[in-house]
Every structure is written in C-alpha cells, then in structure tokens.
Amino acid sequence: MSKTNTPTSHALDRASRVYVAGHRGLVGSAIWRHLADSGFDNLVGATSAELDLTDRERVFEFMHETRPDVVIDAAARVGGIVANNSFPAEFLSENLQIQVNLMDAANAESVDRLLFLGSSCIYPKFAAQPIAESSLLTGALEPTNDAYAIAKIAGIMQVQASRRQYGRKWISAMPTNLYGPGDNFHPENSHVLPALIRRLHEAKVHGSPEVVIWGTGTPLREFLYVEDLAEACLFLLENYDSPETINVGVGSDISIADLAALVARVVGYTGRLTQDVSKPDGTPRKLLDVSRINGLGWSAKTSLEAGVTASYEWYLDHLDALRAK
C-alpha cells in the first residue's frame, strides 16, 4: 500500500447529492450537520426502519432510486468492550453485510466518490505508538474486538479493490475513539467515555460515595470530538485521494483513570473513584499517528474538556429520552 499523501484539492459541488449511510447515529448525524452547515442542500438519508442495510436487494434498489454523487459510509453496528466481547458473531456478520452491500450497490451505480469510515481497532494490539497507517496487518488484533476489526479491515480492502478495478476515487479513514452529541449512553453497551458520563452523573444524583471503574485505569486512550471528525470527513473528500487509509485523531491520549477524574470534575461528582482490577483493560495504548492528515492541513480543534462538557450538556438535555433506553 502506498504511503504517499495524494491531495485532490477538489471542492465538492454543494449541489451534489450526498448519501450519508447511518445519518441518525453519532457519526452520521454530525456529518449531516456539518454538510448542511457547509452549504450542501441535496443530502440523502434513510433510517434503519426505512432501509435495512443488511438487506442486499433493498440496498441496491435504494442506491438506484437515489443515484447519489457521493456516498459516506458512517453506518455500523458498534459498541463498547462488553458488547464487542459478548457478540462477536453479530459484530462481524452485520458489519460485513452493511459495507459490502453499500459498496457493491455504489459500484453498480458507478458512484465515483465514497468515504468509508472504520475504527482505530483495525491496528495490531501491540503496534508501535503512535500508530501509523503502515501498521495495518502487521500483528495480532486485540481479542476483545477482533471481529469488528476484521470487518473494518475488509472494508478498507474493498475500497482499495474498487479503486484498482473500477478507477473509483474512493477513500477510507480510521477515526480514533469518538464521543459527542448523540452518543450511546446505554449502561451496558456504550463506550467508555459516555458510560463514565452516565455513571458519574447518576452517582452524583444518588449521592453514591464511590464509583468503581473497570480495569487498572492505566490504559491510554485518544478521544476525538465527533464534530471535529465531521469536519475531517469533508476535508478528506476534498483533499485526499489515495488507496491507503488515513488516520483521524487528535494526536494525544489520556489514561482511563485520568479520564474518569476529568469526567467527574465536569459532572461535579466528588466521591471516590476506585479500580476493579479483575476486569479487562483491553489494548494497553492506542494513539494514532495523525501526521499525514495534519500534513494535508487538517487538525482537531476541540479540547477534551470542552468536548466532554458539551457531551454532558447534551446528555442532560436528553435525559428523559435516555432513561427509556
């Protein structure tokens, strides 16, 4: 795979029909908002009730009916360490079906521009830090989310195969851990940051003297505010054209213990934070090398504390709906 940055410097026509798959999710909704704010007035979306992306025939029909100029694949079955570890068969099968159906249908309609979004979990568990794009397929994956990772690696390969076979200007990008408005705050199936926001808020409300955090607290994680990712997606569609995937992150990380302390400060929880060392840590460190996207002229703008504050405000504004989940 090429390691060369290939800028396109090709502004997308704001009248282009852009299909955002997964436009109601955390990532897709942020991309939709950013595109709308950037002047795109021909956006296409379909809820899961309107279009089951695992239904291959229906996906082909939808793509033929809408005939988008650009496809952004932000659709996926996602979850935290518990969900990934508990349902690997579903995470592998459903994600493979979603992306294969979308890309095959896009190829059938000769869609020339497509952005596939993956995850930093595609990289080996013990990859050199920070993780460069060239680390892909150089070592064993983290076992707790290897099924999801394999599905996303297959998506990268399908992008590359479509470029090679059909000459498409398709690209893939690998975001680091994401958070922000619209996140999943489910008590069992969410990622670490929204899970901490919910648990620490509820502990504050109930006056709990202690909150137990899974693992040793030492693993290091990088967190990207989802609105920054949305901006990066449009930037890449207009400034990047290469078969090799490209990392999207902030370039710095934080320990889980320090993250919990930051969330506690934002939420206003003043009780004890203790670690349950019998629970798994997952990958010890996962920091992306973002020098390539930085070299093209993009970098994240939102600090972690500002992003967590905005996420907590969104959580408070949507508490009634979230309690029902």
Rank of each mutant, 00 (worst) to 15 (best):
Y179S: 03
Y179L: 00
G180V: 03
P181M: 07
G182P: 02
D183C: 06
N184Y: 00
N184T: 08
F185N: 04
H186C: 06
P187M: 05
P187H: 00
E188M: 13
S190F: 09
H191Q: 14
L193G: 00
P194V: 03
P194D: 07
P194K: 04
A195E: 09
L196H: 04
L196A: 09
L196F: 14
I197H: 04
I197S: 07
I197A: 00
R198S: 00
R198V: 04
R199C: 08
R199S: 14
H201D: 15
A203N: 05
K204N: 02
V205C: 09
H206W: 09
G207Q: 12
G207I: 14
S208P: 01
S208C: 11
S208A: 15
P209S: 14
E210H: 07
V212Q: 12
I213G: 08
W214L: 08
G215I: 11
G215P: 09
T216E: 11
T216G: 11
G217T: 10
T218K: 15
L220K: 15
L220E: 13
R221Y: 13
F223D: 06
L224S: 13
Y225W: 12
Y225E: 04
D228A: 06
D228Y: 01
D228I: 00
D228T: 02
A230Q: 08
A230K: 08
A230I: 13
A230F: 10
C233Y: 02
C233T: 11
F235P: 03
L236R: 04
L237S: 05
E238R: 08
E238Q: 14
